[in-house]
Amino acid sequence: MSKRFWAEFGLLLVAFIWGTTFVVVQNAIEFLPPLTFNAVRFFIAGIILFIIYLLQEKGKITATGRQLLPGILLGICLFVGYAFQTMGLMYTTPSKAGFITGLSVVMVPLLTFLIYKNHPTPKTIMGSIGAALGLYLLAAKNSTGLSIGDGLVLICAFGFAFHIILTDHVTKKVPVLLLTTVQIFTVALLCAISAIVFENWKVVLQSSHIFSNTTIMAIIITAVLGTAFAFFMQMNAQRFTSPTRVGIILTMEPVFAAITSFITINERLSFYGIIGCILIFFGMIISELPIEKTIPFSFLKKRFLDRKL
């Protein structure tokens, strides 16, 4: 099987990990504020990756400043995603936040075209639209009107979209392990600073909070699997596939989250939610099918995508 197949299978595994850890994180932030929790989570993940990096380099730090900058930029994009999503959740519902965050799947091909002039293929356009519609049915159907929280979460979606696009641009130039390590430490630092400014971070010093079984389990799972492993896998996988396909595959995260919620806390999906999950799945499948040479797709490509702007 091709490297692209295994890369995209790895991204699907990442979506599975992030989706299944949603309930774990939701329980943990009852003990620690969100930014404080993320600071601890990303710092531990960074330590793990740094130790692996030192072992790989036989105890020597060989990175140059030029290699560190892309990781810092990726970390900033990732922090924007997490921070604005957290702030937005103070003023909007989780379902709307999930839908708006998922709009990054549509933003990625549009921003890729605007920045790099890369034309998205018809099948990736259809896959993106299908996934976005599925996200709407899964997360936002019958929700209330727009709020300031929705605007904050929209900024979050841009952060995640730019993270995917920039990752595609730099993973071919900088060692993946170094890139991931710098990025994770950057998020940890920015979350720590934000927690000091906006949250009661001193709860970390209270043993009843930091040493509770729920918190310890959540930190271990999210730091090791949901952060260190997942972001290393994403960085590595994006060397072999396109940013748009990454965005579509990662929309499976809320599907896995919905399945996990049903199994663990018996949270049931509505009819629209089930249809949304199906649309997301088919959006991912459409983006993978070798159907570019069929007549309708050839016509669309010739009519709309091959035109000189």
Score class of each variant (00 low, 15 high):
residue 158 F to V: 12
residue 190 L to P: 08
residue 117 K to P: 00
residue 43 F to Y: 11
residue 229 F to C: 10
residue 208 S to Q: 15
residue 201 W to T: 09
residue 164 I to H: 08
residue 160 F to Q: 03
residue 104 S to N: 14
residue 58 K to S: 15
residue 255 V to M: 09
residue 8 E to T: 03
residue 135 L to I: 10
residue 13 L to T: 14
residue 186 T to A: 08
residue 61 I to V: 09
residue 12 L to R: 05
residue 117 K to A: 11
residue 203 V to F: 13
residue 65 G to T: 05
residue 96 K to C: 06
residue 150 D to W: 02
residue 155 I to S: 13
residue 78 L to A: 14
residue 56 Q to D: 15
residue 64 T to M: 13
residue 156 C to A: 14
residue 200 N to W: 06
residue 132 A to E: 00
residue 258 A to R: 12
residue 55 L to W: 10
residue 55 L to T: 06
residue 45 A to G: 14
residue 294 T to I: 15
residue 306 D to K: 14
residue 122 P to F: 02
residue 144 T to C: 01
residue 140 A to F: 05
residue 172 K to P: 02
residue 227 T to H: 06
residue 140 A to L: 03
residue 56 Q to G: 13
residue 98 G to T: 10
residue 210 I to S: 08
residue 213 N to M: 10
residue 141 K to C: 09
residue 251 T to A: 12
residue 242 S to K: 13
residue 211 F to W: 15
residue 176 V to R: 01
residue 55 L to G: 14
residue 229 F to S: 10
residue 187 V to D: 04
residue 129 I to F: 07
residue 141 K to I: 06
residue 33 P to L: 08
residue 97 A to Y: 06
residue 224 V to P: 01
residue 292 E to G: 15
residue 204 V to C: 05
residue 180 T to S: 12
residue 6 W to T: 01
residue 167 T to L: 12
residue 29 I to F: 13
residue 66 R to G: 07
residue 104 S to W: 00
residue 299 F to T: 05
residue 178 L to Q: 12
residue 71 G to E: 05
residue 190 L to F: 12
residue 244 T to N: 14
